[in-house]
Design a protein around this nucleic acid. Sequence first.
DNA 1: CGTTCAGTTGACTAAGGTCAATTCCCGTGG
DNA 2: CCACGGGAATTGACCTTAGTCAACTGAACG
Lengths: 207, 207
Amino acid sequence: MQTYLPHENGYMDHQIKLRLQSVLDIPLWRVEEFLSICKRVIHQKNDLIDAGGRVFDQLGYIVDGAARIFYLNDNGEEMSYLLQVNGDALGDYQSYLTGQPSQVKIEFLLPTEVLYFRKKDIDRLAERDVFWLALTKRISDLAFIYCKRRLDELFFYTPEQRYLNLSSKSPEILNKIPQKYISTYLGITPQSLSRIRKRLAEVDLLT
Amino acid sequence: MQTYLPHENGYMDHQIKLRLQSVLDIPLWRVEEFLSICKRVIHQKNDLIDAGGRVFDQLGYIVDGAARIFYLNDNGEEMSYLLQVNGDALGDYQSYLTGQPSQVKIEFLLPTEVLYFRKKDIDRLAERDVFWLALTKRISDLAFIYCKRRLDELFFYTPEQRYLNLSSKSPEILNKIPQKYISTYLGITPQSLSRIRKRLAEVDLLT
DNA sequence: CGTTCAGTTGACTAAGGTCAATTCCCGTGG
DNA sequence: CCACGGGAATTGACCTTAGTCAACTGAACG
């Protein structure tokens, strides 16, 4: 259940262009050029994208909404790898880069508007104009930094501290996304998250 | 205690050039150009590099040897973030990219030969020739993929499984690097690693 | 030989996992 | 408007595993 909106249809308001300008750090006329390779999609709540072993050859940008990117572990359980909200990316950048098959699944947790572009399209732009090559490098830079931040979180902090960090840095995620998904994102079970919240609430009472 | 070797001194043998050609995936004459911005350093065992809050504006490539990249956690304990051996990279790519201060420390665990290049030098190359811009993108791609692999390891596997994965995928690390560093790399204490090894040995006996 | 430090082991604690029961919340249909 | 159903969240009881602190072993080196 998806609604496709051509980018030229007048719904693409100035706000979005300004946000892309800021996110990508490029001039407005370059944003127009970028949008020419983008497809705008409205996903309904509970929509599911399942890469199912195919190459994930496009990237998405969440204009508005929320989604979780998850995998099934060896035990068949869903592991929420990423919880993405407004301004975040969608996709499997490893598969995108390497052309290897992806097992990723994406579930939309709210009605969500996404801008997608395909690797081949931006690569074609990059071949013709260094500007776009530089942008693809910037995308890789951002992907690395985002990944490293998540790695640091898992490496240096306990589950409890990770929950506190998430609370303070991403209240939007706590508001939009059910606890059962937040728990596996933090690397724990829903029960453990519930107990951590209880512990923290008790400590709160004492202060 | 470091020994600096100019790259033109004849010690830079053909082997290294061939390896760089393969690692960077560039033609041999480009390797020559690349080497013109590289500095070759021999670190002694136990040498320490401490970024100490300065920007880490260079990247290293380990020709031969071993090093660990570590941080001090909030508790003042050393956390081995990366264990690097032949063919691996050295540095703090986040600091390199963003220009933000780095708290990273690097300890050499063996006499280690490293090729370094500075960000400003490769950026200058990249400004003049798209070829080198594409290479800097490739470096970011590789940094991302490397980071994601480590993240997956921490996210999906238990400490015991992580140890088994390391054993099978990187026996070189097990051979070169003391257990006390391997343990914090795996996200556990030296005692726990010792017990995991004991458990595994007992299981081995039964089979 | 001692010294030193890595590695191991023991005893105990803390925290998350597991399985099952219960409660809470919310939307739907009677 | 209320009762019911179903999934989310919580809680309880118990287990497993890692952390902690301290003691001990063993190998390397002078």
